[in-house]
Amino acid sequence: MHPEGTFDLYDATEQEAGSYTCVAHNLVGADLKSVMVSVDGYIAELSNQPVHVFISSVQSHSVRVSWESSGGLVSQLEWSVFADSVMPFTARLPADVRDYRIRQLKPSTCYRVCVEVQPGYSRDCVNVTTKEAALPRRKTESWDGLVMASCAVFFIVVAVACSLVYTSLYSQMFVQETDRRSR
């Protein structure tokens, strides 16, 4: 490795020719660059097999997209709301990544997801609709609280009614006993 950021590779063989991706990180973020490396004039041939994209998981706020490609080159992932003219979101991914979870999506929304391997080499797209959003837990909890409060009120009313009936019967019995003793 040289001070200006370059480096030398020694004893490379033809089997090591191909696409390599360098990922650089700093405090601001990260960037990546892919290059084709030839060894003594030998360049690994790209496969003619096209990229194949499929959705492996769908949630209300995310989808997991996977793809098959034998190109071994950098992939670029794009996604946008289907039939929307807004600029798509993109993510550049290293050559060995073949699976990616797209997050922070809107529920019940149709998206177009595309994967392009090494710009211009191969591209495939799929459409996917996110699931409906689950009902917030708070609403069901408030119903649970309402049912519990209603049951408590019902039991209190029954207890008060039983107490009044008992008191009424007891006082009638007391009055009858007093009347019988006074005769």
Score class of each variant (00 low, 15 high):
88 P>H: 06
78 E>I: 00
147 V>S: 10
122 S>T: 15
116 E>T: 14
37 V>H: 00
166 Y>Q: 10
147 V>T: 02
133 A>Y: 04
92 R>V: 06
23 V>H: 03
23 V>P: 04
139 K>H: 15
62 S>R: 07
33 K>L: 14
176 Q>T: 08
90 T>F: 06
58 V>C: 04
100 Y>C: 05
115 V>P: 01
31 D>S: 13
83 A>E: 10
181 R>W: 02
173 M>E: 15
175 V>A: 13
146 L>M: 10
167 T>L: 14
26 N>H: 13
32 L>A: 03
60 S>C: 02
15 Q>H: 15
105 L>G: 07
118 Q>H: 13
84 D>E: 10
116 E>Q: 11
84 D>F: 05
100 Y>H: 09
108 S>D: 14
109 T>N: 04
140 T>G: 12
125 C>E: 07
112 R>Q: 15
28 V>R: 15
161 A>C: 09
36 M>E: 08
181 R>F: 03
156 I>D: 07
22 C>R: 10
174 F>S: 14
106 K>C: 08
97 V>D: 03
45 E>I: 04
79 W>S: 04
158 V>Y: 07
31 D>H: 03
80 S>L: 05
160 V>G: 07
26 N>V: 14
151 C>F: 13
102 I>T: 03
14 E>T: 12
45 E>P: 07
52 H>C: 03
88 P>T: 10
68 E>A: 00
78 E>K: 08
129 T>N: 08
84 D>C: 08
145 G>W: 05
24 A>F: 13
89 F>W: 08
132 E>D: 11
24 A>C: 14
65 V>L: 00
156 I>F: 12
86 V>S: 10
151 C>H: 02
92 R>C: 06
127 N>Y: 11
138 R>T: 14
149 A>G: 06
118 Q>S: 11
85 S>W: 10
97 V>H: 00
10 Y>G: 03
61 H>G: 07
54 F>L: 00
50 P>Q: 02
52 H>V: 13
75 S>A: 14
111 Y>D: 02
44 A>I: 01
169 L>A: 10
143 W>D: 09
137 R>N: 09
4 E>Y: 14
31 D>I: 10
48 N>W: 02
33 K>T: 12
113 V>I: 12
90 T>H: 06
30 A>W: 15
57 S>F: 04
41 G>L: 01
62 S>Y: 13
107 P>D: 03
32 L>T: 00
32 L>D: 05
6 T>I: 02
147 V>A: 06
16 E>I: 06
145 G>D: 09
87 M>W: 05
113 V>G: 02
34 S>R: 06
80 S>W: 04
24 A>R: 10
88 P>G: 04
178 T>S: 08
102 I>R: 01
92 R>Y: 08
2 H>T: 13
162 C>M: 14
87 M>E: 15
182 S>N: 05
49 Q>G: 02
155 F>T: 09
